[in-house]
Structure formats: C-alpha cells, structure tokens
C-alpha cells in the first residue's frame, strides 16, 4: 500500500468538510476522485499532501506513519524531520500550476532535486531534459513560465513533480484552469503516465477521462465517499441515487 488514510476528519470552523473518510491507494493504481464542488475532494488531496492539517485520523505512506490519532481522538503529526522524509513519497500538481515565474522551465524542474534532495547537478539536468522530451517540451527548456501556454505550464509542473521521483502523484483538478482546447495535451500526458504504471490520484471534472484512464473511481459528496469502484461500474451502473443524479447533471 502506498497511501493509507483512515478516519480522516476535517472542519473549517463549523463546516465539516471531511466526515470520517478512509481511502487507500495501492502501487500502480490510478484513482479518479469526482464529485460536485464543495464535496471535499480537493480538501482530501490537500490533507494527503499536508497542505491542510487533519483534525483526526491516520495517514500512512509506504508503511511509515505520518499522522496518528491520540487517545483523545485528535490528530498527531510525527516530528518535522520524519514528516519531511515522508513528503518525498508524493508529488502534487496544482490547478493553477504554481510554477516559479522567475525560474526558467529547466530550473523549475531541476532546482528542488539539486537543492532539496542534494542530487548531482549533471544527473538531475539530464533527467530533466528527458522529462521535458516526454512532455514534448524539450525545445522550451530555457523559456520562462510567462512565455508558455497554460497547457505547457501544466506539463512543466508535472515534470517538476516527477523530477523528485515520487511514489505517488496527486493532481488537483489539473485541467480546470485551462482553455478547453488545451486540456487534451495535459490529459494525454497523464494517460501516458498511467500506462507506465505511475501511481496517481486525480481530482477531476473530466468524466470521459476518469472513465477511460482510472482503475478506480471515487465519488464524493458532502464530505463522504458515496460510492467507489471500477469506472465502468460507477459510470455505467451507479448504485447510489446521489451518484446517478450527479452523473446525469454532467451528461446534460
């Protein structure tokens, strides 16, 4: 198991965003998380990547415990040093790309491996060029993010996350900020990664993509997992009334 989340609870003030969610991801799995906005799917991802702290529950990566629950039922995070080690297991691709505007494409990708992971420059650079080739951007290595289209920026962001060699890659609505004609190039890259058996969790509104690429689909609503399973099952023959409603609204 790469990621195990158990009994995750998260509230913002009085609003309960995640109500006792449990969620596991196995090696090589591609999991799509779908659901209406405000259902808690992005918050789930932000909790998994420690951008938000959970109120209760357990989070374990590769068998290493990151968050445990105390006897009073409150979440307890492991010490900073251990948490930083665990952070190396995952990468995150944001909806808004969040590239560093003052760094070239190449430096965006190589800086963290060189200065955070302290790996040799030449090796990192060669790998980064290889990643850029894979993203079909090898001729944009020296460009700056502002010179790229949204689709190109998102592909650089994916390369940047992959350069740290994560065990699992999270995508938070990776195509939601893109013009419709640019979503294809990003989805193609994710599909390619799926074929290479990269473990991924994708929060998305692209239903045909979720259906075609993932091994498992999770439908979330109002802070709970309403239904999950094989994409053909969830999309073709949903069991829960709420899922049926949601998918019907989408097909319109």
């Amino acid at each position: 198991m790469i990621l195990e989340m158990n009994g995750i609870k998260k509230s913002f003030g009085d609003l309960e965003v995640l109500k006792d969610i449990s969620f596991n991801v196995d090696s090589g799995e591609v999991v799509s998380v779908i659901g209406p906005s405000g259902s808690g799917k992005s918050t789930l991802l932000r909790c998994a990547t420690f951008l938000e702290t959970v109120d209760a529950g357990q989070i374990t990566y590769m068998g290493r415990s990151a968050v445990t629950t105390t006897s009073e039922g409150r979440a307890h995070y492991v010490p900073h040093a251990e948490l930083n080690q665990i952070k190396r297991y995952f990468g995150l691709v944001f909806q808004q790309f969040n590239l560093f505007p003052h760094y070239s494409v190449l430096k965006n990708i190589t800086d963290a491996p060189i200065h955070v992971q302290k790996r040799p420059k030449d090796e990192v650079r060669a790998e980064a060029m290889e990643l850029l080739r894979k993203m079909n951007l090898e001729n944009r290595a020296d460009a700056y993010p502002c010179q790229l289209s949204g689709g190109q920026q998102q592909r650089v962001a994916i390369a940047r996350a992959l350069a740290l060699k994560p065990e699992i890659l999270f995508f938070d609505e990776p195509t939601s900020a893109l013009d419709p004609e640019l979503t294809g190039e990003v989805l193609k890259v994710i599909r390619q990664l799926a074929e290479e058996k990269m473990t991924m969790v994708v929060v998305t509104h692209e239903m045909p993509f979720a259906r075609a690429v993932s091994n498992r689909v999770i439908f979330m609503d109002k802070g709970v997992i309403v239904e999950q399973g094989d994409p053909e099952e969830v999309f073709g023959n949903p069991k829960q009334e709420r899922t049926v409603q949601f998918l019907r609204n989408y097909q319109r």
Partner: peptide
C-alpha cells in the same frame, strides 16, 4: 500568491529556502 508557498512546501523546500 499562496500557491507559490504551497508549491515550495510540496517540493520540500525549507522555510528559509
């Protein structure tokens, strides 16, 4: 933007970096 801090955090940069 907040996203710059979040990207740096996920990539493992320290607070000083």
């Amino acid at each position: 933007p907040q996203g710059q801090y979040e990207a740096a955090e996920v990539l493992g940069y320290s607070k000083t970096q």
